[in-house]
């Protein structure tokens, strides 16, 4: 059975390794500051006890007052999991650092989030639309997206 690490446990480890990165924690989730995502992920991946070697998915949710980027992480080595979240409060130009340099599996998923939710991933090697065509107006997964009149 995959053990879901508690947010408290991971937040304590993170506080030692990457000071002031953690915003909040609850049950199995940890919220970090968006600008610190890359350092946090690097620690989670490289730490011999945590060893999150597998990025399951990258999602984004539009909560209107902020965007939330959600990373589901699993350690195949230790069979435990964690949900890492980052809130982007800048609605005009939301951005988080890309984690492609750590997990290549983030490549297409970050492009999808960029395409449909409009969150830019800084440092992504090939950040362009994936499902929709270049020049498509807006980002359909945002809650304020309106279908253009035909």
């Amino acid at each position: 059975m995959t053990t879901a690490l508690t947010g408290e446990e991971v937040a304590r480890r993170l506080d030692e390794a990457v000071p002031e990165a953690v915003e909040e924690w609850k049950a199995g989730d940890v919220w970090v500051k968006p600008q610190g995502v890359l350092e946090v992920c690097r620690f989670l991946k490289d730490d011999p006890q945590l060893r999150f070697d597998y990025l399951v998915s990258v999602s984004a949710v539009d909560y209107i007052e902020h965007f939330e980027v959600v990373y589901h992480l699993v350690s195949i080595w230790n069979n435990h999991s964690l949900v890492l979240k980052a809130r982007c409060r800048d609605r005009e130009a939301p951005s988080v650092p890309s984690v492609v340099s750590l997990w290549q599996g983030a490549d297409l998923q970050e492009r999808e989030v960029y395409d449909l939710m409009g969150i830019a991933f800084q440092g992504h090697p090939n950040l362009k639309r994936i499902m929709l065509w270049e020049g498509f107006p807006g980002h359909p997964h945002r809650k304020d997206y309106l279908e253009p009149p035909r």
Binding site: S57, S59, V61, H72, E112
Partner: peptide, 29 residues
């Protein structure tokens, strides 16, 4: 492969967000 659904609820009758982790897309990486 691993097919996952990440669902967010706001207490309503429809999902607030329904993200699909599709193995086909990610295996293409």
């Amino acid at each position: 492969g691993e097919l996952g659904f990440y669902l967010v609820s706001d207490g309503g009758v429809a999902p607030y967000r329904c993200k699909i982790r599709s193995p086909s897309l990610i295996n293409t990486t």
